[in-house]
Amino acid sequence: MQSVAAAVTMVRDDAFFLKAWVGYYGRLLGRENCYVVNHGRGEEMTRLAEGCNIIGIPGDPHANFDMKRWRLLNNLVAGLRSYYNHVIVGDVDELVALDPAEGVSLLDWLADKPLRRVLTPLGLEVIHRIDLEAEALGDTILGPRRHLRLAPHYSKPCVVSLGTKIARGGHFTQASKLFTPDPLYLFHLKYCDFATYTETMNRRNQVTEEVGVGVKEAAIGRHWFAEARGEDRAVFEAFAGLEMQEGFDLDWVRKRMQRSWKPRGDTGFWQFDRPDYDLQYRLPERFFGLF
Rank of each mutant, 00 (worst) to 15 (best):
V4Y: 13
A5L: 05
A5V: 14
R12F: 00
K19C: 13
A20L: 08
Y24T: 05
G26Q: 12
C34S: 13
Y35F: 14
V37I: 15
H39L: 06
G42L: 11
E43N: 15
E44W: 04
T46D: 15
A49T: 09
I54S: 04
I57L: 05
P58K: 00
H62Q: 06
D66F: 08
K68H: 05
W70H: 12
L72S: 10
L76W: 05
V77G: 10
A78Y: 04
V87T: 08
V87Q: 08
V92P: 01
A101N: 04
A101G: 08
G103T: 08
D108W: 02
A111F: 03
P114C: 08
V118E: 10
L124A: 12
D131C: 09
D131E: 13
D139Y: 00
D139V: 02
T140N: 05
P144Y: 02
R146D: 13
H147A: 11
H153Q: 02
S155D: 00
P157W: 05
P157K: 09
C158L: 03
C158V: 05
S161R: 02
T164H: 03
R168Q: 08
G169T: 02
T173L: 10
S176Y: 14
T180A: 14
P183T: 09
Y191F: 14
T198Q: 13
T200N: 06
R203E: 00
T208Y: 11
G212P: 01
G214E: 12
V215E: 11
V215M: 13
A218Y: 09
I220Y: 02
R222I: 11
A226G: 02
R229P: 05
A234P: 03
A240T: 15
M244I: 06
G247N: 06
W252M: 07
S260P: 03
R264S: 06
G265P: 09
D266V: 04
T267L: 08
T267N: 06
T267E: 13
G268K: 11
F269Q: 02
W270D: 01
Q280S: 14
Q280I: 07
Q280H: 12
Y281E: 06
Y281R: 03
E285A: 15
F287Q: 15
L290Q: 10
F291L: 09
F291S: 10
F291H: 15
